[in-house]
């Protein structure tokens, strides 16, 4: 095998607000890096083909598929994973709370990707219609729920986030 594949690349990046400095093989996927090196197993691999959205993370403010990125590309980046949203069930992010309140998950495998994608939607569009929610989640497959309660959850999260937003400021 080509030795260059085994050579390490040094990267510095921030994950959920913590700085990391790591040496990685060039072919190590970001998803595997997060899961295996950092133990952040909330990022799931459902297809490794860029289709299902289970592996969604936020890189420098944009939702991305961590199965299509190499860890080596992350030098200088800030990555946010599902683990960065809450560390206590009593202090969930409003999107997580809404998924809980509205049965937006069953087996939970797609859930981290759904929650991060929904959160990104609401940050951009605080009052999405049902159709806009479905459109925004179109790249995330859920095999369990049929999406009805996921859409309900996102609507409810939008309402909570709107009422939490400080008055006078745009959310």
């Amino acid at each position: 095998m080509d030795d260059v594949l085994r050579q390490g690349v040094e990267i510095r990046l921030t994950v959920n607000g913590r700085k990391h400095r790591e040496v990685v093989e060039p072919r190590l996927l970001l998803a595997d890096f997060l899961r295996q090196r950092l133990g952040l197993t909330g990022t799931h691999l459902g297809c490794e083909q860029g289709v299902c959205g289970s592996c969604t993370v936020v890189v420098d403010g944009e939702t991305m598929r961590s199965c299509l990125l190499f860890a080596a590309q992350m030098d200088g980046s800030g990555v946010e994973t599902i683990e960065g949203l809450a560390d206590d069930p009593d202090r969930l992010h409003p999107v997580q709370q809404a998924f809980w309140d509205h049965h937006g998950l069953q087996c939970g495998f797609c859930t981290p990707g759904m929650v991060l994608t929904a959160k990104a939607l609401l940050e951009e569009n605080p009052e999405p219609s049902g159709a806009e929610i479905r459109e925004a989640l179109a790249g995330n497959i859920c095999r369990c729920t049929g999406y009805v309660f996921i859409v309900d959850s996102v609507k409810a999260a939008a309402e909570t986030m709107a009422s939490n937003a400080p008055r006078g400021e745009s959310p």
Partner: peptide, 21 residues
Amino acid sequence: VRRVEDPRFLMGKARYIEDIE
């Protein structure tokens, strides 16, 4: 009743087979 098992899934703390080291 709201599901009691949900927090671990919502927080990325569930343990699926691939998460076990």
